[in-house]
Design a protein around this nucleic acid. Structure first.
Lengths: 114, 114
DNA sequence: AAAACATGCAACTGCGGGGTTGCGTTTAGC
DNA sequence: GCTAAACGCAACCCCGCAGTTGCATGTTTT
């Protein structure tokens, strides 16, 4: 489908890669952890993970590809942190879709009441 | 990671498959269309899509796997519609994560202001 | 300078996702 | 009853993702 039916809204086209990036338990966990613990190195992120350090690295780069995180080099470490701006965009995106569903749900509710 | 770091919150574990289901432009388009056009048959959903009918079928079943849609047979047709309850759950899930990010963003803001 | 630490790079595997084609089956519509 | 529409099923292909291992490189630390 992609851009069928009178051109899908832009925020939907943008949303797909975003969802895809978050559609992995490991990555979602990394984001959550960066959320509540702030910037962390790869080593620290890998410590409690049940996958390899390299796996974590790949996931971080996947998240970076979606623009959700950013890395900064500090000595021999590579520190990863959330990307506020992009995260804010993503947040709005989620809310728009949420709102879209909400109105759809209301309409469905009307049907039921008839 | 998955359930590392003092057990990841349940709503995170649940969210991953949800995001995964939505992490495809085609599927996202299908959901959006069911949102604003109501229940539709596979044929109608495939009409304007740029993939095959079978592809659409698979996507629908993927969405069904995430509990987002439901099918009803009507004659020779198979009608697909949104699953309100589950969609509501998903919506709340998005909002929780959104809120989580929001507080993280606020904290980041504080850092900047220092 | 040597040991320990943090990471990069590359190759490799396995598997599932997204897509297709071909054909069979059921249900409308004349 | 015959044709066309709507769909199911199954096999197949391709590619990228998630994960691994092994080794090299750069940085602290003592």
């Amino acid at each position: 489908m992609s851009r069928a039916r009178s051109a899908a809204p832009a925020f939907l086209t943008d949303a797909a890669p975003l969802f895809a990036a978050l559609g992995d338990e490991t990555r979602l966990g990394v984001v959550a952890r960066l959320c509540r613990e702030g910037p962390l190195s790869i080593a620290r992120l890998s410590e409690d993970a049940d996958v390899t350090r390299q796996a974590i690295t790949k996931h971080l780069e996947a998240l970076a590809g979606a623009g959700l995180v950013r890395d900064t080099r500090r000595g021999r470490e590579r520190i990863w942190e959330l990307e506020p701006r992009r995260l804010e965009v993503a947040r709005r995106c989620l809310e728009r879709i949420s709102a879209q569903w909400d109105s759809a749900l209301e309409r469905l509710q009307e049907f039921v009441e008839e």
